[in-house]
Design a protein around this nucleic acid. Structure first.
Lengths: 152, 152
DNA sequence: TCCGATTCATTGAATGTTCAATAAACCTAG
DNA sequence: CTAGGTTTATTGAACATTCAATGAATCGGA
């Protein structure tokens, strides 16, 4: 540990504080709107959006969990709640008996429609309205590279 | 809603997915190390670090909550746990009878020392090793501006 | 000075997430 | 073809967070 890089310098610390600030506060900011408009939390919203965009409207639980950046266990609990509310349904995968497929229902689509416009508006207000095109692409590229490290 | 900007275009969506990916996965990635090295979650770690850097080693609960990007209620629950473990202590603020001050104890400092080296190493691995100096500063500036919007 | 409004913090209940255990289906080396 | 390991998903219990209610201390205007 003797040749270890020292604690963050001033510029790194400023960057880190801003980044971790966004990381910690953004989900809460988004959930206020989602809860108000559609009684969903952010993870539930991601699940519904993921299914809406999926090929054939269905997705395996584990793929959906990865897409939503959550654990399979978390998704399993959330899926039970969403299924009890009638927003999604689950059924066995015909190709692989271990897998479960999830699908958005009609009411699920409606609920998504309640949430989406306000969600997009808020995402624009909080992020994209603050950045010009170059900055937006730069932010995306940097975040993508960092995400790749986190996922590896 | 008729003149509302439409849903995100392709470039915006790519940026958003990368950003939200970092937002959702970074805390979990950090907590693996903190849990292993010092049996702390990320919020608890922020609380201890906040107190370590505070003027006079003490900070008001509400200021600490803001610094740690969490609600006062959340901090209050966490502070009780940390106090029960002997890592921090709380006492009435002499200047304002409504306020509570928190302070890091000796054992709290030790626990922080268990967590910090590995935490810095991981933060470097996940974020700073991926970015050159310009990219790092750019990321910090953009995150700072977005954070300002979230906080407002 | 007094009273209503605000700030600060805590609490318990409801809710959500993680962790470890379980189990079924599948794959593959021998 | 089968025993052992892997992948997939679910579950209950432990743990953490949010939400709404409470209460104490302070502030500020009439």
């Amino acid at each position: 540990m003797s040749d270890e890089a020292p604690w963050l310098d001033e510029a790194e610390m400023a960057t880190w504080l801003a980044l971790i600030g966004v990381v910690m506060r953004l989900p809460g900011a988004l959930e206020v709107q989602l809860r108000r408009d559609a009684d969903l939390n952010h993870f539930e919203y991601c699940v519904l959006v993921g299914l809406e965009h999926a090929e054939g409207g269905t997705m395996r639980m584990s793929d959906l969990a990865f897409l939503c950046n959550g654990s399979l266990s978390r998704l399993s609990h959330v899926a039970r709640r969403l299924e009890n509310e009638g927003l999604i349904e689950r059924f066995a995968c015909p190709d692989d008996g271990r897998s479960t497929l999830a699908r958005l229902t009609g009411p699920g689509r409606e609920r998504l429609a309640q949430a989406a416009p306000g969600h997009v508006r808020l995402v624009r207000e909080l992020v994209f309205d603050e950045l010009d095109g170059d900055e937006m692409r730069q932010m995306g590229e940097l975040a993508k590279r960092v995400l790749a490290r986190i996922q590896s």
